[in-house]
């Protein structure tokens, strides 16, 4: 078991990072901090997917002269590029909402906002 964990230590790190992000979202009170937790979770997922495409002693999947294998899988890179753009879009919307909430309520602490409701 421990050996399997050690072999897949990249995946384990992603899981740990994922849970840290989730902890921040639940436990922190400030909306921006909550949002940073979400960004940590996003990073964890991207790291996980990128790690799937790694091959030992591999080179990047760019063909052309002088390129020799084994090549890393190109699919995870394409997926993560899409994922990053999605994450950027979510970030933009969340920050817009936080700006508006701060302008209207004067605070971005979750418990104070709950009292105002």
């Amino acid at each position: 078991m421990l050996e399997a964990l050690w072999n897949n230590v990249d995946y384990v790190a992603s899981v740990v990072l994922f849970c840290i992000g989730l902890y921040i979202i639940i436990a922190k009170n400030n909306l921006i901090k909550k949002f940073l937790g979400l960004n940590i979770m996003e990073t964890a997922v991207f790291a996980f997917i990128i790690a799937l495409g790694v091959v030992d002693d591999g080179s990047p999947p760019i063909m052309g002269e002088g390129a020799s294998g084994p090549f890393a899988s190109p699919i995870p890179h394409a997926l993560v590029l899409t994922g990053i753009v999605v994450a950027v879009s979510t970030t933009a919307l969340a920050l817009s909402l936080i700006i508006r909430i701060y302008r209207q309520c004067g605070t971005i602490e979750a418990d104070e906002l709950r009292e105002m409701e």
């Binding site: 078991m1 897949n8 230590v9 995946y11 790694v54 091959v55 030992d56 591999g58």
Partner: peptide, 14 residues
């Protein structure tokens, strides 16, 4: 989650 990722195909295996 850790148990499951440990059972994934080995990292970097061609």
């Amino acid at each position: 989650m850790l148990i499951a990722v440990a059972a994934m195909p080995p990292h970097g295996d061609a």
